[in-house]
């Protein structure tokens, strides 16, 4: 039976009427056209679908949309405050060469945010643990680690 839910995504409120078995990933991509959030495996292993719910990074492929009812969701499209400017994490990913095919990038950036929101100066081990749920098959991990450390510095200097 369909249910009415309300999602606050990147600051915008969406009232939806959806089947309870649909995942947050499907609803974001198909109903809201927020296709920056990817689907890589559908079983919580690859991290390409990572979004934040109420400030915590989760796998949107394993989250039922109804479970997110009334919650605040942040996707990669909401990372930058406005159209032109980039989030420091995005700037760092671009400048440090942390992007190759780009399919893991949105999830990586949100995992980075999940780490940096509490710790702007993580060491390499902390960064690697923080992205342990995000696979990059272009094997660009070193540059991603560099980018996250750099993003922490950028965010610190903006404070």
């Amino acid at each position: 039976m369909k249910q009415e839910i309300s999602l606050k995504v990147n600051g915008d409120t969406y009232d939806l009427y959806i089947e309870p078995w649909r995942t947050l990933n499907e609803v974001l991509r198909e109903d809201l056209n927020l296709t920056g959030t990817k689907l890589g495996c559908g079983s919580g292993d690859c991290g390409a679908c990572t979004v934040m719910i109420d400030g915590k990074s989760v796998s949107s492929c394993l989250t039922l949309a109804v479970e997110a009812n009334g919650k605040e969701i942040l996707t990669v499209e909401g990372l930058a405050p406005s159209g032109e400017a980039l989030h420091p994490i995005q700037e760092a990913f671009i400048e440090k060469g942390a992007i190759q095919c780009g399919f893991c990038t949105p999830g990586m950036e949100l995992s980075a945010l999940n780490l940096l929101k509490n710790n702007l100066e993580p060491n390499e081990t902390e960064i690697r643990h923080a992205i342990s749920g995000n696979l990059c098959r272009c094997t660009g991990y070193n540059k991603i680690v560099d980018a996250i450390a750099d993003a922490g510095q950028r965010m610190k200097s903006q404070q």
Binding site: A80, L86, Q90, I94, G102
Partner: peptide, 16 residues
């Protein structure tokens, strides 16, 4: 030299 598609990929705007 930053990659030409870096911004599109970093912001989730790149279309797959």
């Amino acid at each position: 030299i930053p990659r030409t598609d870096g911004k599109a990929k970093a912001t989730g705007q790149a279309v797959y």
